[in-house]
Design a protein around this nucleic acid. Structure first.
Length: 273
DNA sequence: AATAGTCGCAACCGCCGCAGC
DNA sequence: TGCTGCGGCGGTTGCGACTAT
């Protein structure tokens, strides 16, 4: 994608206003260069952000203020988190979207380091793709129910599995360290806390506790989890019997079978992380 | 190896609401 | 009270990367 230098009418905010003053300026569009990034970062480091149009001019950037703002917020800001969404984040997005719809900026406020643009892209590319595969609208109640009753529990399972795996790895590492220390004639106090694999085989209890913990920043979701709302849903039977709508129930059953057979296996979701 | 199709994501566009004058 | 400038938001686009054939 080549960066273009084209005449741009500075009319990007109020095209609907008559008599607006228009300027013909040579403005850059398209991908930002390293030099532009450095210019913007350095300028903000020295002068702070805000007042984007004047900032763009003062910094000598041939960009609109909007473009500068977007570049900073979505890419250059030091606290922007990169990489795939964690299961926790996916769960949170699904939950918040079911509450607020496409209020991306509002949703982003609950995912530190994630931008509204990133969440929006995630939703459109991943979630809507699966909705399309299911031949239903991503905003439909059916799809949202499927998300709540099927995808979320799977994500919890995956996150649970990952957590246990990490725990086991840490314990194995600790054990190895202890063995090494003992072999070297040293004894560490932490060796007392070494646990065998049985000690963290805690069944469903873990999922409930973990669910409450994992969305620490998730607002009401945590409360709902603690009130048993979500734990009920996690134990939703595969036959969808808790749906009052028999048509929906049947549909969910086929969805569930699709999940377990060839759609979203745990392995698939694991790979998505 | 070449081509077509798909995906992921950065960036842009148009609209809206707010504040200052 | 209306105009203007601006920040912010959600929707959309375009293109490089990746994958399948």
């Amino acid at each position: 994608m080549a960066c273009s230098l084209v005449p741009v009418v500075l009319d990007d905010h109020h095209g609907h206003h008559e008599g607006v003053q228009k300027q013909q300026l040579e403005l850059r569009r398209g991908p930002w260069t390293v030099d532009e990034d450095l210019t913007l970062v350095n300028y903000i480091a020295n002068h702070g952000e805000g007042r984007w149009n004047s900032l763009a001019r003062a910094a000598g950037l041939k960009r609109t203020g909007k473009s500068c703002r977007l570049r900073w917020l979505n890419y250059l800001r030091p606290d922007v988190k990169r990489g795939n969404f964690t299961a926790d984040e996916q769960l949170l997005i699904l939950d918040l979207h079911s509450r607020w719809g496409n209020r991306w900026s509002k949703i982003a406020q609950h995912l530190p380091g994630r931008t509204d643009n990133e969440i929006k892209n995630y939703w459109r590319t991943r979630v809507q793709k699966h909705a399309k595969q299911l031949n239903c609208d991503a905003n439909s109640k059916r799809f949202q129910d499927a998300m709540r009753f099927l995808w979320m529990p799977h994500l919890v399972d995956v996150d649970d599995h990952r957590h246990r795996l990490l725990q086991a790895q840490q314990q194995q590492q600790q054990h190895a360290d202890d063995v090494h220390a003992l072999s070297a004639g040293m004894v560490t106090s932490s060796s007392d806390s070494f646990a065998t694999s049985e000690s963290y085989d805690d069944g469903g209890l873990y999922a409930s506790v973990h669910a409450a913990e994992m969305l620490v920043n998730g607002g009401d979701w945590v409360q709902e989890a603690s009130q048993g709302l979500w734990s009920d849903q996690w134990s939703a039977p595969a036959n969808g019997s808790q749906f009052q709508d028999p048509e929906l129930s049947g549909w969910v059953q086929s969805f569930s079978e699709g999940v377990t057979e060839n759609f979203w296996t745990l392995e698939d979701i694991w790979k998505m992380q």
